[in-house]
Amino acid sequence: MSKISHLIEVIITLQFKGLTTASELAESLGVDKKTIYRYISSLNEANIPIYTKKGRYGGFCIDEEFYMKPANLSCEELEALLMASEILTKENGFTKEKELKMAVTKIKNLEVNNNDKLKIINKNSHFGFEQTGNLENLDYKISKINYSISKGRSLSINYFSINRSNLTIKKIDPYDLIFRMGSWYLIGYCHMTGRIEILKVSRIQSLKTLNEIYIKPHDFFLKDYLDDLWAAFNGEKIKVSIRFCSHISDFIRNGRWHIDQNITDLEDGSVVLDMYLDDIRDVKSWILSFGKYAEVIEPKKLREEVKEELRELYIKY
């Protein structure tokens, strides 16, 4: 990622999170602390009002009067950008397809709080933005998350899952909040799945701080957790291929499982469903719901995870 992108992410992180340490910034951006100090120096040279608070509870903070606002594009401008990202592809001779899609994604995330605007676009065009039901604005959600993290309180979250296409109530112990590639992400322990998850803040419809106290594990390190997720943050989608046997091929063929999917018919009557996902964790449960009728072809990591879960089930039964 370019230095300019990192500098913007530092500014936005300080705007929303308030006092932030060099270690926290380094972990979220995937760089060392020396680089963070150089970034702060560069921003100060550009007259960005970032201050240093020394001491045990010190860190960096930005002047409350300084604020970077979204572009506030019109519906027509937003729709034109999305349409361009669909039309301008490598197949059509456009060599910067990946960069354009990443840029449009960042703009969409900055505009995501304007629900009325997104509804108009969804209603009037098949180039629809993801509608994730942001009933509470970004400032409020981040404020609530920061409060829960500082007080060690669990959160009840109404979350929209793209892969499952529904709203789920999750109880989360919030560990950290990071800004990456134009989006805010909440990282925490999910009591429903029994694992640490990363949730996109724009997909949180509503949230509530609970009275239940939690303690973040001493062996949790943000950098270690993020090491396996940089592909998603860098805009690289993961190809997931699943073979469905002939018994349910019609069901798969007639369904719309993902906005970015392709279905191939095989000679024996089975079909292969290809999907390009940002994150493969939610799709595992969906695949397992088909039992013996579904087989993961790729990626290898997902195939091994399904295999391990089936092994544990075999031992249990």
Rank of each mutant, 00 (worst) to 15 (best):
I259Y: 08
L199E: 08
G235L: 04
D274I: 05
K200E: 10
I248C: 08
V240D: 01
L266Q: 11
D224K: 04
Y185Q: 07
L177G: 05
K284D: 03
I204C: 06
Q261A: 01
V272Y: 08
Y225P: 03
I198L: 11
M275T: 14
K200C: 11
T264I: 07
V272T: 11
D224M: 03
V201S: 03
I287E: 00
K208D: 11
Y214N: 04
T193P: 06
I287D: 00
I213G: 01
D278G: 15
A231P: 04
K284C: 07
L177K: 01
G194R: 03
A232H: 10
L207S: 06
I248W: 09
D278I: 04
S246A: 11
Y276I: 09
S270V: 00
E267F: 10
I287L: 02
G235F: 02
K208T: 14
R195H: 10
I280H: 05
I242G: 05
L226A: 05
T264E: 13
N234R: 05
N234P: 01
I238T: 15
F290C: 01
R256T: 12
N254S: 15
T209M: 13
K237D: 15
H247A: 14
C245F: 13
G182I: 09
R203E: 13
L177C: 10
L199Y: 09
Q205W: 02
N254M: 12
T193W: 05
T193R: 14
H258D: 13
Y175L: 01
G255H: 06
G235D: 08
I252S: 00
R253T: 13
M181L: 12
E212H: 08
Q261L: 01
